[in-house]
Amino acid sequence: MKAFHLEIITPERIFFSGEVEELIITTPDGQRGVLPSHTPMIIAVDVGEIKIKQAEKFKSCFSAEGFLEIRPDKVVLVAQVVEWPEEIDIRRAQEAKRRGEEQLRQKQSLQEYHTTMSSLARAMARLKIKKSMNID
């Protein structure tokens, strides 16, 4: 199977670097797959799940906002936070979700609203990935 080089980089570490067969990311318009020899492109990445296909198997992980740069030689995903499902702290995510929902009920400035919405989105995405892992 054809493969391409993928790097996933966050401010705190190099999360992933290696050959993969397919990558699925969440964009503001929905999910999007990247296969080898994709045309050079820059894609905004939204909070959600990303899937990496290696040896015919998909591995999923959580990703916060970022962007994907598809170059002829490699693909680079730069994101704020990327976590494997086993690294997700479910209690922290639940707490963040509760806190976010609580804050939404209160009066907020527009800036506070955006902050709350994005932290809520992160918490929900984390919980969703954790949940889908437990069912498998």
Partner: peptide, 8 residues
């Protein structure tokens, strides 16, 4: 590489 990027 000399090409241009597409944006999505």
């Amino acid at each position: 590489f000399g090409g241009t990027f597409q944006y999505d």
